[in-house]
Simulated assay, not measured.
Amino acid sequence: MAQQESDKKKISSKFILLLSALVIGGGAFGFYKWQYAQNHQTTDDAQIETNITTVTPRIQAFINEIRVKDNQFVKKGDTLLVLDDTDIQTAVREAEAAVAQAESGIVSAEAQTQASTSTLPITQNQVAAMQANIEAAKAKLWSATQDYNRYHNLYQDHTITKQQFEKAKVAMLEAQASVKALENQKMATQGQTQSTISQSHAVGSQVAVAKANLERSKAALASARVNLRYTVITAPISGYISRVDLQPGQLLHPGQQLFNIIEEKVWVVANFKETQLEKMKIGQKVMIKADAYPEHEFEAKVTSFSPATGAKFSLLPPDNASGNFVKVVQRLPVKIEFTNAKDEMLKNLRPGMNLEVIVVTK
């Protein structure tokens, strides 16, 4: 009997010791967690972010050569695509010829200012020829105006591109300018038959018209040369190519999305609850672990806070002033940048990867 009571006391003592150890251990662990929570803020609602640039053509042309492929790294200025420039080369040569013609027109007009004031009056045949040129220019203007009206309706229906509509508009404006230039030239030339003074004014008007034609031709040449440069599409930034789905001979349109360039530099956007922000400040140390590499810890720091919560940027932001109000804890995006540039694991991070972020607020 005494032996049984002795065994019960031993069991009771062991149980009390075990219970005490559990209580002390649990209390210590709880105190550690509480103290840790006072100096750290944690979230797993975080992802890798970077700049994504869309590559688009500025002119309508066919693809001649594709010099990149999926996942390839390119540097800023590298050639990505080469477009067919046959039509644009022709436009450049036509514009150069127009400039040369306009320059010769100025030389001719200026030569007339030095001619004798006893120049013979203009003949009826010359007047008839000028009028014929004016009528021909008016016919071109009528045709260009009709084309513009048709293209305007098609553009409103989104049947044609903006570039085609703008070409029709430019053609109409050029035709209007041609009619006006010829009429001014006729008026200036006819003025020679009135008097020496009127002859001087007429010649001056011809020079002004010739100079205006030269400026217009130079503008057309500059536009054609710019379009020629656009036939070579280069990388606007350094990064990795993504989603190249193109074929040689494919027709491209201005503004068409071709593929993306993913910038090499990455950062973190972590969404913290508004109740976690009290002790968080810019410059605080951050420890990051990626789900893809759980054994590696990245070093970083807090660099900025979003000016609004994530819900305010959503497609349908909540409006608590209407309907039933339900309080929901909001999350604020916090930008975090890596501080250890020598970390070789950084190049393995890709935009969209999930992370666990711990901010040291002590």
Rank of each mutant, 00 (worst) to 15 (best):
V268Q: 09
H296E: 07
Q126A: 12
Q126Y: 04
L18P: 02
A46R: 11
I122L: 13
V92Q: 05
M353K: 04
L221P: 04
V226M: 09
I241Q: 09
S322P: 00
E49R: 14
A115M: 13
V99A: 02
T193R: 11
S238I: 04
S200T: 08
F165S: 03
A111V: 00
E297A: 12
F313Q: 10
A202L: 04
E166L: 09
E274Y: 11
R225H: 08
V74Y: 03
I11R: 06
V179Y: 08
K281A: 15
E166D: 11
A136F: 07
Y36K: 06
E295S: 09
I106M: 03
A132F: 03
F259Y: 12
F62I: 06
L315C: 00
R350P: 01
K362T: 04
G77I: 15
A222G: 01
W267K: 08
Q190K: 15
Y151M: 14
K186S: 09
L214K: 14
N125T: 07
A308I: 11
R58N: 13
T90F: 11
M1I: 12
T309D: 03
T53Q: 12
I134K: 09
K289W: 04
T79P: 05
P317L: 07
S143W: 06
D70N: 15
K162M: 06
I358A: 05
G77D: 08
K69G: 15
R216N: 13
Q156E: 14
S314R: 05
N354S: 13
R93L: 10
V55R: 10
M172A: 07
K10D: 05
I11F: 05
S306A: 15
N348D: 09
V244M: 13
I288Q: 02
V359H: 05
T159E: 14
A210S: 04
A102G: 08
A28M: 11
F73H: 13
Q35G: 01
P333I: 07
A91Q: 14
L17T: 08
I63F: 04
T113D: 01
T113Q: 13
M287N: 10
A220Q: 04
G30I: 01
T90A: 14
I233C: 12
P318I: 01
A137D: 10
I358F: 00
F73S: 12
I11T: 08
G352T: 09
K180R: 12
K76T: 14
Y240W: 07
N354T: 13
F62H: 07
Q126L: 02
K218R: 15
A188M: 00
E103Q: 14
R225A: 03
N71C: 01
